[in-house]
Amino acid sequence: MYDLTGFQRDLLYVIAGREEPHGLAIKDELEDYYEKEIHHGRLYPNLDTLVEKGLVEKGQHDRRTNYYTLTRRGRREIDARREWEEQYLD
């Protein structure tokens, strides 16, 4: 996960915390967290990068709406990151 941006890590956490979220649901979560607008031009290329890296899978709810889920590798990466963070937060 060392090669991901902070935004990409945040995307992983949001996807992990929701059941098959679609892009706009992810966008809404991050806008609440960042307290500013997230543009589609930032969101979707970063989601595509996570798919290309094998951390996220993209499926279709219907012809217009995609959903995202973590892969096993994505879950392992989050778990490893949390373990790493915890050693500094005790």
Rank of each mutant, 00 (worst) to 15 (best):
N66M: 09
K53R: 13
P21S: 03
W84E: 05
V56K: 00
D79M: 02
D79K: 04
R72L: 04
Y13V: 08
Y33T: 05
T71V: 09
L43P: 05
K53N: 04
I26G: 00
E19I: 06
R73H: 09
K58S: 11
E77D: 08
T49K: 09
E20A: 14
L30D: 04
I15D: 00
G59N: 11
R76L: 06
E37I: 11
E37C: 07
L11H: 01
L4V: 02
H22F: 15
L55K: 00
T49Q: 12
R82V: 14
D62C: 09
R76A: 02
A16D: 06
K58D: 04
G59R: 14
R42Q: 15
E83R: 14
K36Y: 03
G6S: 03
D32L: 12
V51E: 15
D3I: 03
Q87H: 07
D28E: 14
Y13H: 10
Y68N: 01
R82C: 07
I78E: 03
N66F: 13
V51S: 15
L89I: 15
L4D: 03
I38Y: 04
K58H: 05
L30I: 11
E86L: 12
E83I: 13
M1H: 03
Y88P: 00
Y68Q: 06
M1A: 05
E85G: 12
K53L: 11
A16L: 06
L43W: 04
Y33I: 06
G6P: 00
E57H: 15
E19Q: 09
V56D: 00
T49N: 14
L70M: 12
Q8A: 09
T69N: 15
R72T: 08
Y2Q: 06
Y68M: 09
F7K: 02
Q8F: 05
T65N: 12
Q60V: 10
P21W: 02
L30W: 07
P45W: 08
G74D: 02
L43K: 02
L4K: 06
M1Q: 05
D90Q: 13
T5H: 08
A25V: 07
Y34L: 14
G59F: 12
L50P: 02
L89G: 14
H40D: 10
Y67E: 01
Q87K: 12
D28S: 14
R81D: 12
T5W: 05
D32Y: 09
T49Y: 10
E20Y: 14
G59L: 13
T65Y: 06
R9Q: 10
Q8E: 14
Q87R: 09
I26D: 00
H22R: 15
